[in-house]
Computed example of a mutant assay.
Amino acid sequence: MMEAAMIWNEPNNKSHWDPEIDPDWRLFAQMAILAGDAIAAADPGLTRVLGGISPIDPGFIGRMKDYGVLDHVDAVAVHGFPLDWNLWQIGEWPQRIQEIRSVTSLPIWVSEVGVSSFGAEEVQRWGLERTVALLKGKAERIQWYSLYDLPRAWEATTRHREAEGSSYYRHFYMGLLREDGSPKPALQEFIRHTPEIGLVQWFHFEDPRLDDAVAWMKQLGVTHLRTGLSWADSFRPGALDWFDRQMAALEDFDVTVTFCFTPEHRGLAPHHTSAPIHPEEFAEFCARMTERYAPGSRRCPAAADGYGSRPSMPLQPSRSSSDPSQPRP
């Protein structure tokens, strides 16, 4: 079920890695090297991906190369949202990919790309069509963000939140499905490109959308999915039971698991973006999860419970809406 392990998420974005603690990313590089080696020791055949960068910055990849990080991963990844947050036009996608190819020969994954329907749902549909046309054949993996809109009762994982103005609220409209599970116009466009184009869907701790998401993805023809397992969540009561349930539910897909989020009590600062006090602890978390869920290790203990077998569903609104009380990680 787990075909790849991604080391962190957007490490050059201050909403995911604190540059005041680690201004030259030296601590991140040390942590990434340890994690890459730990994942390889747990499953030598598993693809290791350097966390998708946002913004797309060849200088950051060059820095990781100089630190030796690229010797411990098998691919690098980029994230792009030119219609929402990036300061470049959507037609520049091929140029952005080429900029990364100029500094590394590793495969390049576009592990997160999307368009918000904040302004108009028709813009999202056009943006999906245009993005796929620009990226097909230019990157080794393309994954659309995301299946579901973010519930308005939750918070987007971003540093400044409402102070970002309309930029913040765009985070809540990235889904092919609205918060209530009903489809947007872009959904029909997405179906035209599966299984070649995959999905990104973050599942929060004990996320009530999990089973409906699995049914939707099977109906849409999705075969590869990117999601996450949170190091911070691993300290919650019942965390391993939830991880088992999530991964067993996703066993019919080729899953890229993103390992990220520092537990507050294990960071140099009490925040999920902080560099850890002991980077070896993050590497150990990556190894434990790889050993538990990667095919080259041992089978997910929850698989026998049947969570991975869900019937497909028609293209219609979800049977249950998201729980607005569900906390963010």
Rank of each mutant, 00 (worst) to 15 (best):
L220T: 06
F235S: 05
P237E: 13
R298F: 09
R292Q: 05
A275I: 01
T262H: 00
T273H: 08
V222T: 10
P263C: 03
M217K: 04
V255R: 01
R292V: 03
A249D: 09
L225R: 06
A232F: 11
R226T: 15
S234W: 13
E284N: 11
L220W: 13
A303F: 08
R226Y: 07
R298N: 10
A215D: 07
V255C: 06
A275Q: 02
P301V: 05
P263I: 01
F235I: 01
R266V: 01
V222W: 09
S297R: 12
F285R: 01
G228E: 13
P279H: 00
E281S: 09
L229P: 10
C300P: 15
P237M: 04
P263R: 04
A248T: 10
F282S: 03
E280G: 14
P276T: 00
R299S: 13
T262A: 00
A302P: 05
A249H: 08
P276G: 01
G267P: 06
A239Y: 07
D254K: 08
D212Y: 04
D212S: 06
T290Y: 04
S234I: 08
D212G: 07
C260I: 06
A287T: 02
A232W: 14
T256F: 02
A275Y: 00
S230L: 09
T262G: 00
A294L: 02
M247S: 00
K218E: 12
P276H: 01
S297W: 02
G306V: 12
Q246V: 15
D211N: 03
E284Q: 14
R299D: 12
G296I: 09
P237H: 10
A294R: 01
Q246C: 14
P237G: 07
A303W: 08
L220M: 14
G296T: 10
G238Y: 05
W242R: 11
S234K: 11
E251I: 03
G228C: 09
E280A: 04
P276M: 01
A283V: 00
E281T: 12
H271T: 08
T273L: 02
R298G: 07
F253W: 08
A294V: 04
A275S: 15
M217W: 04
L250T: 10
E281V: 03
V257F: 09
L240V: 14
E251C: 07
P301M: 02
